[in-house]
Design a protein around this nucleic acid. Structure first.
Length: 287
DNA sequence: CCCCAGTCCTGCGGGC
DNA sequence: TGCCCGCAGGACTGGG
């Protein structure tokens, strides 16, 4: 499931191949497959993209941004199963959008592939992106958030810290997989109310967040057993082998504490943790 | 405002 | 062997 590290890997993967190249044609379903959510509707989307040069590629939280020459932006949101590819898609079947690029060099196209079709592709005119995805919709990026940002966000909610970590308006970029991993690495119980975390715990959590996301980016993200996630060249990520708790219910705790990894459901999503290494109350507070 | 449940979607695995 | 159901979760919506 593309979270910050996977989306960052997509951005780094496609950037050298598409930067500076002109979009000469856009294709989508039904010439490819069933359409996904697109704004503006086809064919306006097509007309507004075609003939524009891609000036840059960047990540905004869990979205891929293609910066076009006229200060408009194509925003791709992969959600669960979306991939940005410059080579060999996992199947022809779920190709959703193709941007054909000018020039003879390979690749000749950039593709958005999405098996489940929950992803979205939007084009924003100059200035519109900052309004649509402003600070009220996206909090500070998880790689950039300061300790002050973390304190501010935790004071704003009594929800369990695991649930709060998934709220993109507080801190942006963290998803279900890495939320469990960073809480385990921090020794913080996932059901702790966010506003009960002490400054020292937030310092630890922030450091664990940075360490895990940077490690995951280094290993090009996590390809789970369903095999969906791939980098821009349709290769597996490597971070799944480093997971300490995610999808490890019943397996021994990675800290060798003798306990098994537990699974609970919070806000309708699985959370994995160790009851010994992540005590429900901060150490030293009694009860 | 705060928070939760429901919704979208497809493929896969468990149970019978 | 084959069918059906539940589950996976990112982001949004509606309602309490």
């Amino acid at each position: 499931m593309p979270e910050l590290p996977e989306v960052e890997t997509m951005v780094r993967g496609i950037r050298p191949f598409v930067t500076g190249r002109k979009i000469i044609e856009v294709r989508r379903g039904p010439s490819l497959c069933k359409p996904i959510c697109m704004e503006p509707d086809w064919p306006d989307f097509n007309h507004l993209c075609t003939g524009r040069t891609i000036r840059g590629v960047r990540r905004l939280a869990k979205r891929v941004i293609l910066e076009l020459e006229n200060s408009s932006q194509i925003v791709i949101e992969p959600r669960m199963t979306g991939l940005m590819l410059v080579a060999d898609p996992p199947s022809q079947e779920h190709l959703r959008v193709e941007w054909r690029l000018e020039g003879n060099e390979s690749p000749g196209s950039l593709w958005f592939w999405d098996r489940r079709g929950l992803g979205t592709v939007r084009l924003y005119g100059p200035g519109d992106l900052a309004v649509a995805l402003g600070p009220d919709r996206l909090g500070p990026d998880a790689l950039l958030a300061t300790l002050t940002d973390w304190q501010t966000f935790c004071r704003r909610t009594r929800r369990p810290i695991k649930v709060a970590l998934l709220d993109q308006t507080l801190i942006a970029g963290i998803g279900n997989l890495y939320a469990s991993e960073m809480l385990f690495r921090s020794g913080i119980h996932p059901e702790r109310p966010a506003d009960s975390l002490k400054k020292g715990e937030l310092t630890t959590l922030r450091k664990a967040c940075l360490m895990i996301l940077e490690e995951a980016i280094h290993y090009e993200g996590s390809t789970l057993s369903d095999g969906t996630y791939r980098n821009a060249l349709n290769q597996n990520g490597g971070y799944q082998n480093a997971h300490r708790v995610y999808d490890r219910e019943g397996l021994p705790c990675s800290n060798h504490c003798g306990n098994q990894v537990l699974r609970i459901v919070q806000a309708q999503r699985s959370t994995f943790y160790c009851q010994a290494c992540q005590p429900p109350f901060p150490r030293g507070t009694g009860s």
